[in-house]
């Protein structure tokens, strides 16, 4: 609360996420016993290459632990979450178990510092590593929200330089009067810290100790981290809280005594920082894919993106006439086709072109609303918009039937006249037979005699013949 009043956002550093390297998500743990001011101090340094997928802030004893003011050993919290490496995390109120400061755990906002200015370390949704001081507004940012965030006390290293003095000015509480904060910075003790190096790898630091007897102060820790290429780091809870767990097993020497003071026992703490196997972001791939080694493999043909939360129906994107869904383009009313690029065929309208036009005389209708374009028969039948089939049908209906009728009438007339003439002809013939007249036709094949007879009797044809 000694912070100078500044306009705008609070001072912090954002570090772009490292380029993803397949298989580089595992934690690399180094153990050290180093000399600080002539004292041998043991500890661990852990680097994580893909922090967005392998680093989590955990509530004590699992989700809901802060709300329930739980305290749990790092081992218990880490084991349930499957942590490969785990350390104690943020500060907490020992009497009540309250988590202090900001806590965002796997994209869940758990605890809010209420604008209190202490050093923060977090990872945003896009993998950006953020270190420093954050306003309330920045903590609650929804455009690129924090997926992991926790609070420490004292910004140890800022952009490759020790930043303790500036932190004391920002985070102190009447330092000159009480001396409490100054002692906190300078006393030797067990310490933990979190930060990142120049490669964008997350770095966890832990050093064993006991307040005022063993361990290191914040200056020594900052110098050690600088030698390890750390560019931004904050100090986390220390003293009896400092705990390091490797593969579910306590791997440090806690400074709190057990009830039997012969032994040392790990403290039940609040939040935990955890390094685990790569997880997808979000872990369930938004419900539209499968997480395979930290990468979402999207299901279906249209879900895309690292989180399988983007629908992609191809370059045409439904031709601006539809909505891309997980089953493909859902076309607007009046449009059809896999890309919604085709208008409804004439005679059909509506969503999916499923509704037939209900217009008189085959008039076309609006493909979107179904409103009839024209109601006059003449316009519809000869309108150029009418389909060829419809035009053919109308032509067939009028001309062909007329021609067919005329042809049939003509044939009928011919048939009638032929029958009448045949009838009249046969009647005349019969009448001639009834009159009793005979007609004789002389045979012509009579050895040529006929010619001689005809010459002798040319006047009467009946005389040469006798009954």
């Amino acid at each position: 609360d000694c912070a100078r009043v500044r306009a705008g956002s609070r001072e912090h550093e954002s570090w772009a996420p490292p380029l993803a390297t397949p298989g580089a998500g595992r934690a690399a743990v180094r153990t050290f016993v180093s000399h600080f001011g002539g004292r041998a101090v043991a500890g661990h340094l852990t680097r994580v290459a893909d922090p967005l997928r392998t680093f989590s802030v955990l509530e004590p004893g699992g989700p809901g632990g802060c709300a329930q003011r739980r305290r749990a050993t790092v081992e218990n919290t880490a084991r349930a979450a499957g942590c490969l490496v785990a350390q104690n995390g943020g500060f907490f109120r020992m009497s009540t178990g309250d988590c202090l400061g900001n806590v965002v755990s796997d994209a869940r906002r758990v605890s809010d510092a209420g604008g209190l200015q202490n050093a923060q370390f977090g990872i945003r949704r896009d993998g950006t590593l953020v270190t420093g001081y954050l306003s309330e507004e920045e903590v609650l940012d929804s455009e690129n929200p924090f997926v992991q965030l926790l609070s420490g006390v004292v910004w140890l290293i800022r952009n490759g330089s020790v930043y303790i003095n500036e932190s004391q000015a920002t985070e102190c509480d009447e330092t000159q009067e009480t001396g409490s904060f100054s002692k906190f910075v300078n006393v030797m003790s067990a310490r933990t810290a979190v930060g990142h190096d120049r490669k964008g790898q997350l770095v966890l630091f832990h050093a064993d100790g006991q307040t005022e007897q063993r361990g290191i102060n914040l200056w020594e820790m900052a110098e050690f981290l600088l030698q390890q290429d750390v560019v931004n780091a904050i100090n986390l809870d220390g003293g009896g809280s400092a705990t390091f767990v490797l593969n579910g097993t306590l791997a440090s020497y806690p400074s709190d005594h057990c009830q039997d003071s012969m032994w040392r026992c790990p403290r039940h703490v609040s939040t935990v920082v955890c390094v685990h196997e790569p997880r997808c972001q979000p872990p369930d791939c938004s419900g539209h894919g499968t997480c395979v080694e930290g990468r979402c493999e999207c299901s279906g043909s249209f879900w895309r993106g690292a989180a399988c939360n983007e629908l992609d129906c191809g370059s045409s994107n439904c031709s601006r006439h539809g909505l891309c869904t997980e089953t493909g383009c859902r076309c607007d009313s009046g449009w059809t086709g896999s890309n919604c690029s085709e208008e409804c065929p004439l005679g059909w309208y509506g969503p999916g072109c499923q509704r037939p036009c209900r217009c008189e005389h085959q008039c076309p209708c609006d493909p979107q609303t179904g409103d009839c374009i024209s109601s006059q028969v003449k316009q519809c039948l000869w309108a150029p918009e009418v389909t060829p089939r419809a035009a053919e049908l109308s032509f067939f209906t009028r001309t062909t039937w007329l021609a067919l009728t005329l042809a049939l009438v003509f044939l009928l007339l011919i048939s009638i006249s032929a029958n009448v003439s045949l009838l009249l002809g046969s009647r005349g013939e019969r009448n001639r037979h009834l009159d009793g007249d005979y007609v004789y036709h002389p045979l012509q094949e009579m050895n040529g005699d006929l010619l001689a007879i005809e010459k002798e009797q040319p006047g009467d044809v009946r005389e040469p013949f006798k009954d």
């Binding site: 006390v153 985070e171 906190f184 307040t211 003293g239 057990c258 009830q259 039940h268």
Partner: peptide, 24 residues
């Protein structure tokens, strides 16, 4: 192993217990 209750006796506090910092 090492899972007994601790005495919480190695306290390393940045601020005095009695003080409550004002949020801004």
């Amino acid at each position: 192993l090492g899972s007994g209750a601790s005495r919480d006796d190695d306290l390393l506090l940045p601020y005095p217990r009695a003080r409550t910092r004002q949020a801004r």
